[in-house]
Design a protein around this nucleic acid. Structure first.
Ligand SMILES: [Mn+2]
Ligand SMILES: [Mn+2]
Ligand SMILES: [Mn+2]
Ligand SMILES: [Mn+2]
Lengths: 218, 218
DNA sequence: TTTATTTTTTAGGCTTGTCTAAATTTTAAG
DNA sequence: CTTAAAATTTAGACAAGCCTAAAAAATAAA
């Protein structure tokens, strides 16, 4: 059985490997966990002892099959609970992450299986992130950052890269959400800023925004 | 803010004061928490420092107003989650306690308020225990142990004193649940055993059973 | 290819919550 | 009232997770 801290480290390593490739540095882990490098080293050594990561001194860490499976299961729980909070309890998408951070550690396979059923076996969480199935399989989806689109291209918003409350609230003010149709009206070469159209309204966004919105192009 | 361990001790002290009166002994607490007396003493001292119990060396502990309020809130959360598990996820009443023991520590007032609403502001949990309202008020209900009934008296089962999975499963085999109508057909003076009737079936129960079933007499 | 900088690990400490063993206090017996 | 037993507290230790400061290794610069 794994402690809350261990589970959080495994999840962090999973996301880091996902985002930046295999072999995660001590500093990267410490950064993500908001702890000191020495604390990260301690935990890395413990996780290596438990065979959930492979690790050689100074060479970074990678999840083993077992470690990955644990991490994915936590992510599955996190995302299912987020769906519950939004779909059943009417929370907004910017309010659910912190609560799901707690709920993801509740230990009961039966609970998650029943929750999944209760929610109608959803494929995505409120932020557009895919929900791994009970075997840990994550269906690959083709999605593209808005920043990669050229003038006159368009698509449907299917996810956010950043999912901080701040960013999500910004999107709310612009009426952008999962399912929104977005078209690039104009793109500035110099700073990658864009004018986009969202349901007959046009406005200006910076690169920082377009780099955090995933679209499915049509 | 209170740690998980602190919350569990507060809850234990609340239940002990409820069951056996004010001023709870170190041993009683250690017993309920399944720890050693020395560990209980450590925690008692910490909780006294935090002003959530009043305590004098060798004299036992009692919850302060603040401590009681924290304890009741945890119990509220526990019971609401139990309702959720049974009503929404179709768990049996003997399967929910352990999961609720975890869920009761999730920290979010908003979550509990919304959960309460989602469940239709239930008054009782699946074991017949009252759910404190958000101000910590517990509506007093008149209920009587089956063991107190005399021959030919009857009532409706409104709760269980013991709520171990074992006991609940025993009740299931006899088709006894919340709402069941129970009549005392015969009572043996010597050992307090009874013959009872539950929906046109009669059977024999020991004192140990009748002392753990709450009825509302009619 | 040395030297300087950055990254990582180690050493030693702290807090929480637990334990065993021993000391102390209270309560029960004689 | 004195002694024995039971309850409670204290002392000292340990694991988990974190920290700071210092040492060691890897990487970058000169
Ligand atoms: Mn989240
Ligand atoms: Mn999410
Ligand atoms: Mn319960
Ligand atoms: Mn209950």
């Amino acid at each position: 059985m794994f402690t809350l801290a261990e589970e959080n480290y495994l999840k962090a390593i999973f996301h880091l490997e996902n985002d930046y490739g295999t072999g995660v540095s001590t500093n990267a882990i410490a950064d993500k966990m908001d702890t000191r490098a020495s604390s990260a080293t301690d935990m890395i050594q413990k996780l290596a002892d438990k065979k959930v990561i492979s690790y050689q001194k100074y060479k970074g860490a990678s999840l083993t099959k077992k470690g990955k499976s644990i991490a994915v299961n936590i992510i599955r729980k996190h995302r299912l609970w987020e769906v519950f909070l939004v779909e059943k309890l009417d929370f907004q998408w910017d309010e659910v992450h912190e609560i799901a951070e707690q709920l993801e550690h509740i230990k009961s396979d039966e609970l998650i299986q029943r929750l999944d059923l209760f929610l109608g076996n959803p494929d995505f969480d409120p932020h557009g992130d895919p929900i791994p199935d009970k075997n840990g399989y994550i269906k690959p989806t083709e999605k593209k950052l808005l920043s990669k689109l050229k003038k006159n291209q368009q698509g449907i918003c299917v996810g956010v890269k950043e999912s901080s409350a701040k960013f999500l609230q910004y999107l709310d003010t612009r009426k952008i959400g999962i399912g929104s149709s977005i078209k690039v009206i104009d793109k500035e070469d110099f700073d990658q800023s864009m004018t986009i159209q969202v349901s007959n309204k046009q406005f200006f966004i910076t690169k920082q925004i377009s780099e955090n919105l995933y679209l499915k192009t049509i």
